[in-house]
Amino acid sequence: MTSSSPRVARDHKRIAVDLDVIVNGVLNHVDGRITDLSEGGARIDGASLPARSRCEIHYGGQTIYAVVMWSEFDRMGVRFPYELSHGPLHAALEYARGAVPTAPAQIFRAMRPVGFGRRGLS
């Protein structure tokens, strides 16, 4: 019988982005694309390094250190030992947060006439 630990809620909300990056491992560097980003980590498509390895992510002249948490054939998830708080990658995250669609506004609900249909027929 196996037991699995309960999942812990993430500290930061993940935001969908589309950012081209270069990932430096110990022996090589590969091009990748960040598709999911938060202050604490990222999902990188097109690049794959072994789990628990360390790497550098280069974006916009900035170098971000990361640890690979999981890895598949063509993508991986990384955790940043130091949370993003400044620099081009953080700016891209903040820009993407501002571009996230929100729920439709409900300002016209109070202005609707009471009745049947759009014209308020009774």
Rank of each mutant, 00 (worst) to 15 (best):
residue 15 I to S: 06
residue 104 P to F: 12
residue 5 S to N: 09
residue 65 Y to G: 10
residue 97 R to T: 03
residue 89 L to N: 04
residue 120 G to F: 12
residue 102 T to Y: 00
residue 79 R to M: 09
residue 66 A to V: 06
residue 40 G to T: 03
residue 26 V to C: 01
residue 7 R to P: 03
residue 31 D to N: 14
residue 100 V to W: 01
residue 87 G to W: 04
residue 91 A to N: 14
residue 115 G to K: 12
residue 43 R to K: 15
residue 91 A to R: 10
residue 98 G to M: 06
residue 71 S to I: 08
residue 29 H to S: 14
residue 16 A to H: 07
residue 39 E to C: 14
residue 35 T to W: 00
residue 111 M to I: 10
residue 52 R to M: 10
residue 80 F to Q: 04
residue 108 F to A: 06
residue 63 T to N: 05
residue 13 K to Y: 04
residue 33 R to H: 08
residue 13 K to V: 15
residue 109 R to C: 04
residue 19 L to G: 13
residue 19 L to T: 08
residue 56 E to M: 06
residue 102 T to E: 10
residue 68 V to H: 02
residue 44 I to V: 14
residue 105 A to G: 13
residue 96 A to W: 04
residue 110 A to C: 05
residue 118 R to T: 12
residue 2 T to N: 05
residue 107 I to Q: 03
residue 90 H to P: 00
residue 34 I to G: 08
residue 36 D to N: 15
residue 52 R to G: 00
residue 37 L to D: 06
residue 10 R to H: 11
residue 99 A to D: 04
residue 54 R to I: 03
residue 61 G to Q: 07
residue 92 A to I: 09
residue 119 R to H: 14
residue 30 V to G: 00
residue 48 S to L: 10
residue 7 R to D: 09
residue 100 V to S: 08
residue 79 R to Q: 13
residue 37 L to R: 03
residue 19 L to M: 09
residue 34 I to H: 04
residue 10 R to I: 04
residue 43 R to S: 12
residue 39 E to R: 15
residue 83 E to R: 14
residue 116 F to P: 00
residue 109 R to T: 14
residue 110 A to N: 06
residue 88 P to H: 12
residue 43 R to T: 11
residue 80 F to A: 09
residue 96 A to E: 04
residue 17 V to M: 10
residue 61 G to W: 09
residue 73 F to Q: 13
residue 97 R to A: 03
residue 97 R to N: 05
residue 63 T to H: 03
residue 95 Y to G: 06
residue 63 T to Y: 01
residue 19 L to W: 06
residue 92 A to N: 05
